[in-house]
Amino acid sequence: MADSQTPDPGKGEFQDPLENYDPPTFDDPLERGLHEETVTAIQSQPYAAISTETSVADALQKLAAQEISCLLVEQDGKLVGVFSDRDLLNKVALEYADVKNRPVHEFMTQQPIYVDETDSAAAALSVMAVSGYRHVPIVDLEENIIGIVSPQRVTKFLRAQLDKAAS
């Protein structure tokens, strides 16, 4: 007979997989700030979005008019891609006359890496470092677009974190 105190594996007793998890600790004030702040502490709005059927010409004009480097491409409110300066350089610039009226979904970067709004600021920076993405979209739990983290915004955020750590 099994001891009532002994867990019976056959009964699938719950074992918390995180029971021995020790969250990381940081002595460095800047590392602590980047780890503890969520990505929403980095300015992520306003952002500009277009539909998948927007023409390349219209997307280009929107980028230029707003003086931004990246548009989020959405379908039914969900993020499906980004269209950026790099897409223009690599896929559009030399072919512009032939492609200007085609839909942007043919030239966008599909399924971009994004971060959740609850992720740390360090996570967004790590996405940029590892994947080479310069713009990182932020989505909520339903994968609705919240905003976008850009190089300029990250720079400003890092500057503020450095100043905060110094004070």
Binding site: Q111, I113, A122, V130
Partner: peptide, 26 residues
């Protein structure tokens, strides 16, 4: 900066999300 957050880098490399086939993009 990311060198100081090896855990976060590991998450990105192992990936809870897909890895892009093409470099951005942005």
């Amino acid at each position: 900066v990311a060198e100081h957050f090896p855990g976060e880098v590991m998450v990105q490399r192992i990936g809870t999300k897909h890895y892009p086939e093409q470099r951005e993009g942005a």
